[in-house]
Amino acid sequence: MTSRVDNDDTLRIEWPRPLDAEIVLRHVESGEECPAGDLTVLSPGDWTAFCRGEPVATDDPGFSLDGLWAYAESRRSREIRAFRTPGGTLGLRVREVEPYVEVIRVTADDGVIQAEGAIAYGDPIRGEARLVAVPRRGPEPVSGPASFQGRWFEGALEIEPMTVNQVRSRVFWDLYAEIDGTRFPLATRLDDIVDKKTKVRFPAQRVAQIRVRPYYTETDSLAVAVSVEEATS
């Protein structure tokens, strides 16, 4: 069987459905049950699909990059995604979302970090913008030129300003697209790569004894680690 959540938050299942069988969704933590016909009432968290009291088995991982991109092109405050549980049954994951830039490409070279991507869960935007790096503590934010063309975003940021007057051994900077005073986090969440923080590595650049490297956080947001390297004898 295959299963998808359509853009209108309707669960579509292709399978030899038993006669007079209704799919019921059960919240994994609370045990709350809801009919699968109305996903708008589902509370955040993971839900398991049941039919006639038994979990619905599936060999479909629930992943379609094209489908997820189409879903993310609609403005929404909640994401509902079908997936296959470790036990091989159909599940739904419901979570609250806000507009952000889904990063497609990151380039770190020649003293610059460049990012390209598209707005997810928000409206198209057009105009000049900024790629902003915000430290979690310490220095002031720094920024570089960027632009929005509909959903598409491109921005570049010189790394040298992030290294000026660094007094801590390591400073972490979170990246945002900013336009008209509104900031959109940069992240990569529509693919099927889990644990990007340990699996995806970008090239490091250096300014004197300071290393600058983009990385993914535990929430798949794009950030930059600026570290003072120990001098070698």
Rank of each mutant, 00 (worst) to 15 (best):
41 V>N: 04
144 G>T: 01
61 P>A: 09
111 G>C: 07
30 S>Y: 03
76 R>E: 04
149 Q>H: 14
81 R>Y: 01
183 R>A: 13
196 K>V: 02
71 Y>L: 06
69 W>D: 13
73 E>D: 14
39 L>Y: 03
196 K>L: 01
154 E>W: 13
99 P>W: 09
122 G>A: 06
22 E>D: 12
175 L>C: 08
175 L>M: 08
208 A>E: 12
46 D>W: 00
121 Y>C: 03
133 A>D: 00
141 P>H: 05
121 Y>E: 03
46 D>M: 05
227 S>K: 14
224 V>G: 01
57 A>M: 13
143 S>I: 02
3 S>C: 13
136 R>K: 15
127 G>P: 07
165 N>E: 10
137 R>M: 14
53 G>H: 06
171 V>C: 11
145 P>E: 10
59 D>C: 06
53 G>M: 04
140 E>M: 10
50 F>D: 01
229 E>Q: 14
230 E>S: 12
85 T>N: 14
28 V>T: 09
201 R>P: 00
98 E>N: 07
15 W>L: 15
133 A>P: 00
12 R>Q: 12
194 V>W: 14
180 D>F: 07
139 P>D: 04
15 W>N: 08
156 A>D: 08
182 T>H: 12
49 A>I: 00
204 A>P: 03
185 P>W: 02
148 F>H: 06
26 R>F: 02
200 V>E: 05
186 L>T: 02
29 E>F: 07
228 V>P: 03
168 R>H: 15
179 I>P: 01
106 V>S: 02
45 G>D: 02
49 A>L: 14
204 A>M: 09
202 F>P: 03
81 R>D: 07
172 F>S: 13
131 L>T: 01
32 E>L: 09
158 E>Q: 10
154 E>Y: 15
102 E>D: 11
108 A>V: 10
175 L>N: 03
69 W>V: 11
44 P>Q: 05
184 F>P: 03
